[in-house]
């Protein structure tokens, strides 16, 4: 498609969409203070008695789940089934990469110079410690299993690229058992509380690390699983690319 036609088409779409958007731009009513809809309000109050209580105090105990980070509560508790599907999609994508690229031409990559290869494990150690903090505090502060897992993968990538070591085989095992562990936590909820992925570990005090141990367990599982998936997925690319140079 040539450029003129593309610009014309995009202009057409823009004119239509912007017209609809501006004419329907939310006025004051849906976006004023206290304007959350019922679902968001129910997620935020997190009480089992119909969301009547409005203020959550420090030290509250009788909540549905006691995570401080409401986004984490939505992602892992209320929409935990959705997150299971998301993790499955990521697993499928990485398995597809392995299927496409995993051939016979896997070779070791050459290590970098002495400066990088001697400093790489130190940097990787600090990155992995920080990422453990991030995914363990996913229910208290911004962060969680997905960014924490991405950081662990970054730490391993520094070691792979700097020292020439290959991604260990154990990552495939961690991928598989991470998915199994997620489903196991869901089945425990089913057996103890009656529905899949329900919070079966109780909820403690708001704002403490062990108050919402359910979300902590799930985010630790997700963190390791995402780290293993990203590392092994990137390992396929690196092995393939470097094989051509040698």
């Amino acid at each position: 498609m040539n450029k003129i036609a593309a610009i014309f088409l995009i202009g057409l779409i823009s004119a239509g969409a912007l017209g609809v958007y501006i004419s329907n731009l939310p006025g004051k009513k849906p976006f004023k203070r206290n304007g959350h809809n019922d679902i968001s309000r129910a997620y935020m109050t997190k009480t089992a008695n119909g969301g009547k209580r409005n203020v959550i105090k420090k030290g509250d105990r009788k909540l549905e789940n006691s995570s401080s980070n409401i986004v984490t509560a939505v992602v892992l508790d209320y929409r935990g089934f959705d997150t299971l599907g998301e993790v499955t999609v990521l697993f499928a994508a990485i398995a597809g990469i392995g299927l496409l690229l995993g051939g016979s031409r896997r070779r070791r990559i050459r290590p970098a110079g002495p400066v990088i290869s001697s400093m790489a494990p130190w940097i990787a150690a600090f990155i992995i410690i920080t990422s453990a903090y991030i995914f363990l505090h996913g229910h208290l502060s911004p962060g969680g299993g997905f960014p924490g897992g991405a950081m662990i993968a970054a730490g391993f990538l520094i070691m792979v690229l700097g020292m020439g070591s290959r991604a260990p085989k154990i990552f495939k095992t961690i991928e598989t058992f991470g998915g199994l562990a997620f489903i196991t936590v869901g089945v425990i909820g089913f057996l103890k509380k009656g529905s899949f992925l329900q919070n079966a570990f109780g909820s403690g005090e708001v704002g403490t690390l062990f108050g919402s141990i359910f979300l902590g367990i799930l985010y630790a599982i997700i963190g390791f699983k995402v780290a293993a998936e990203l590392s092994s997925g990137f390992g396929e690319f690196v092995a393939e690319e470097e094989g051509k140079h040698e």
Binding site: V55, I56, S68, L140
Partner: peptide, 11 residues
């Protein structure tokens, strides 16, 4: 995030 606004009318 509940930690930031514990004091006010949180929700």
């Amino acid at each position: 995030i509940l930690g930031t606004v514990f004091e006010t009318k949180a929700v």
